[in-house]
Amino acid sequence: MVMEMTQEGKAREVLVIGGNRYFGKRLIARLLAAGDRVTVLNRGSSAPPPGAVHLIADRDDENALDSALGARTFDVVVDQVCYTPRQAAVARRVFAGRTRRYVLTSTVEVYAHEDSPARVREESVDPLGVEVDLALPWDDAEFLASHYGAGKRQAEAVFAAEPAFPHVAVRVAHVLGGADDFTGRLEHYASRIRAGEPITVPAVNHPATYIHVEEIADFLFWTVGQDFTGPVNAASHSTLTTHELCEAVAAHVPGGRTVFRETEAGAVSPLSFRRFYGMDNTRATRLGFAFGDAREWLGRAAGETLREAA
């Protein structure tokens, strides 16, 4: 086994906050396979794989988080479950002096207010220009669900406001693939295609950028070993349309029928968009990461997720 080493020649100390499912668990597996000393912190909902240290704490409870960490320090922290500026503020205070670098898993949804003919670059949303409002009802699940992108934007802003806190905000494209895809988005298409029911899309339906579940795990693992900071887009090459997604799904639904219904202002199916805010991956590419092409892995991703329907 080739072990990843720090500059001092020691195995890296990496903390993953969350990471119980989907690409988070894949990241942990990659870190362990590389010989990193991995600590996983969560609320105790599930134990990490063998070889990882398990810490239990509610990341919203600053005292509990501080107590669970004790005197531990880390080369890198990967935060998979920071959704609000309040959580970011707690993390920034608790991890100041405890880590050399903090990697926040952010989202393409920070760009949800954009509408550009070109793919958006990182500077389209400058965290230093984002207003932070800690008084909003971030603890309310319904509010948080409807303000997901805003919560991530403000979380990025909290970290960016402290220059002495080296951090990365990985803005993740829409993730597809894996039999453990819990989002139900492709199954939504499959169920409607199976029944011949219409799939509702905007009258002007824009394509989007995507990334395979294994590729984002690779990207986060690669990021752990780098030294860059600031926001970075993580997306496969090529955009995909709702029609292309449905075509890939339909290949695994024998006898189904794909019907689209357009709407000007009503509710639409998942992964259909009234705005274009596909991400430009130039920065990550120049830093040295090689992305795949979404059109090349889309069929495989649909098969992985819909294997029971195939």
Rank of each mutant, 00 (worst) to 15 (best):
T229E: 09
G256N: 08
P270Y: 02
A33W: 00
S236R: 03
I193R: 02
S106V: 11
T239H: 00
R153H: 00
H54E: 01
E304F: 02
P50N: 02
R119L: 13
T229C: 09
T285C: 12
T285H: 08
C246N: 08
P137S: 05
A150L: 11
V232H: 02
Y148P: 12
A89W: 00
F95D: 05
F219M: 08
T107N: 15
S269P: 08
G278N: 11
V2L: 08
A52T: 06
S67G: 12
A161I: 00
T99A: 12
R274G: 15
M1H: 03
G230M: 06
P137T: 05
A217N: 11
Y102D: 07
A57Y: 03
L136A: 13
F182Y: 13
Q87G: 10
R86G: 09
T73C: 14
C82D: 04
V77A: 08
P207S: 11
Y83N: 06
V78W: 01
V213Q: 09
R192D: 10
D139T: 08
E308W: 00
A235F: 04
D218R: 11
G278T: 07
E114N: 10
G70C: 11
V125I: 14
T39L: 03
N281I: 02
S272C: 10
L65F: 07
A112V: 14
V201E: 03
A294H: 01
E131V: 00
V232P: 11
S106G: 14
G266E: 14
I216V: 15
R93G: 12
A195T: 14
P202N: 08
G70M: 09
N63Q: 13
L55E: 06
L136F: 02
P202Q: 06
T285I: 10
V253Q: 09
A68P: 06
P207R: 02
A265P: 08
R194F: 00
A169I: 09
E62T: 05
V40L: 01
P231M: 10
H147Y: 01
G288Y: 03
G177E: 05
Y22N: 13
Y148D: 06
A91W: 01
S106M: 10
D133K: 01
H206K: 14
A141K: 11
F159N: 08
H113D: 15
W297S: 04
F219K: 03
G44T: 07
V224Y: 00
D180I: 05
C82L: 11
R26A: 15
V76G: 05
R307C: 12
A150R: 04
Y210V: 09
A164K: 12
L128T: 02
A52F: 04
G177P: 10
L41R: 04
A135F: 00
M1G: 14
K25T: 11
A91P: 04
D293R: 03
L65V: 12
I199G: 10
A29Y: 02
I199K: 02
H243P: 01
V249D: 09
E4H: 01
V213Y: 02
G149D: 09
E13M: 03
M3E: 07
T282L: 10
D61K: 04
A294S: 15
